[in-house]
């Protein structure tokens, strides 16, 4: 019984370490997907002047953006007749955390959604450029921190497992 308990505690410690390490990597991937979304939006606006409905629907269908779980919710709400800013904000509030976006990311995205579709094409392109830059930077920072803290989390998990084994045995 004691051995089983020890094994379980050790597994839990290791899993926690690996979970926090992979969460950082997932956040990097999601931020990259977000950057891709912004650059796709820019292209669509620049060459086709696509409406937000077309942009969001198109983004939902793209494989590389499937990680962004808030997009289908936003699309659904928008198609049901809700104003875009509300649909965008609500979807982020519901699914933003699931995409491993932190409070600051969500706040930035909400502000972006409030301004999206409210000005002419030039204004929109400049808005997207500004937010692309912000999220590229955040993506770089997240990658660095994932590299740094990922190793630390894994090591801590293993160390905690070993510590628990020593104490329990």
């Amino acid at each position: 019984m004691k051995t089983v308990g020890t094994v379980l505690v050790m597994s839990a410690c290791m899993l926690a370490g690996f979970f926090f390490a992979s969460a950082g990597e997932l956040r990097v991937r999601n931020l990259r997907a977000l950057c891709l979304l912004l650059s796709a939006m820019r292209r669509e606006m620049m060459y086709r002047q696509s409406s937000l409905a077309e942009l969001i629907k198109g983004a939902c269908e793209r494989e590389e953006m499937k990680k962004l779980a808030f997009l289908p919710v936003c699309c659904e709400l928008f198609e049901s007749g809700e104003p875009f800013a509300y649909a965008w904000r609500t979807s982020l509030e519901q699914k933003g955390r699931l995409c491993l976006l932190n409070g600051e990311d969500i706040g930035l995205l909400c502000a972006f959604g409030d301004a999206l579709g409210t000005t002419d094409c030039e204004g929109q392109l400049s808005l997207i450029d500004d937010y692309s830059e912000i999220f590229s930077l955040r993506s770089v920072q997240a990658r660095e921190s994932a590299g740094k803290y990922g190793k630390l989390c894994r090591s801590l998990g293993l160390l905690a497992a070993a510590g628990a084994a020593i104490i329990l045995i």
Binding site: S50, S51, L52, F84, G117, T118, T119, Q124
Partner: peptide
Amino acid sequence: ACALGAFCGYSVHSCQ
């Protein structure tokens, strides 16, 4: 403002 948003599908850039 609300009606205008709905008229242009919340996409002023598409209807400029």
